[in-house]
Amino acid sequence: MGCFHSKSARQFPAQENTANLAAETAFTVSEVEALFELFRSISSSVVDDGLISKEEFQLAIFKNKKKDNLFANRIFDLFDVKKKGVIDFEDFVRSLNVFHPNASLEDKIAFSFRLYDLHNTGFIERPEVKQMLIALLFESDMKLADDVIETILDKTFVEADLNQDGKIDTEEWETFVKKNPSLLKIMTLPYLRDITTSFPSFIFNSNVDEI
């Protein structure tokens, strides 16, 4: 009250927005409201403007360590649905929806494909996979000789690149992940089932009557 910033940064989403998001995702209205508590905490960690910046996203993933990281950047870019350089609440809910245990396998496969298609070419290409492998080795302080990395890439592309054109298309990716379901483990966050228990304070800010 009395603060001209309070509307955008702090106000709970309008009832109809919450209801729409719940209708179009796997979340209930209460869960969308609980997600708003999480969103509010992340989006106010650096600047309390009701939007998640890349810096705030990285802080949330890596806690206190400031880290510029290929994978975190990629996830941020995919969450930034409207390509505004920030994540708004709607982007946040719709993106997390793919990670819901009840989200469809097709959505999880499609999102994971886009995650690895670093340059948005519509294909997962060998240089992209090599770039990600090198980033992973750097991040985890693991060292592998270049010929070992090439061997891993050879093996992966023999298995995944069925028409052997040097890149993995969406159909090849679908076949590959169905044969290797563990690859989709990162696409499900069991935590999302219990979001209202984790952020019970949503009850005090709720716009809906029947919780």
Binding site: I61, I75, A135, S140, M142, T156, S182, I186
Partner: peptide, 25 residues
């Protein structure tokens, strides 16, 4: 052993993909 895994098995082990961190207060 890393060599016995495919590239995506390795990449998906990146800590940065662990979005559960988002929920830790």
């Amino acid at each position: 052993k890393p060599v016995s895994m495919n590239a995506f098995e390795l990449i998906s082990r990146s800590q940065s993909f662990n979005l559960e961190n988002l929920f830790e207060k």
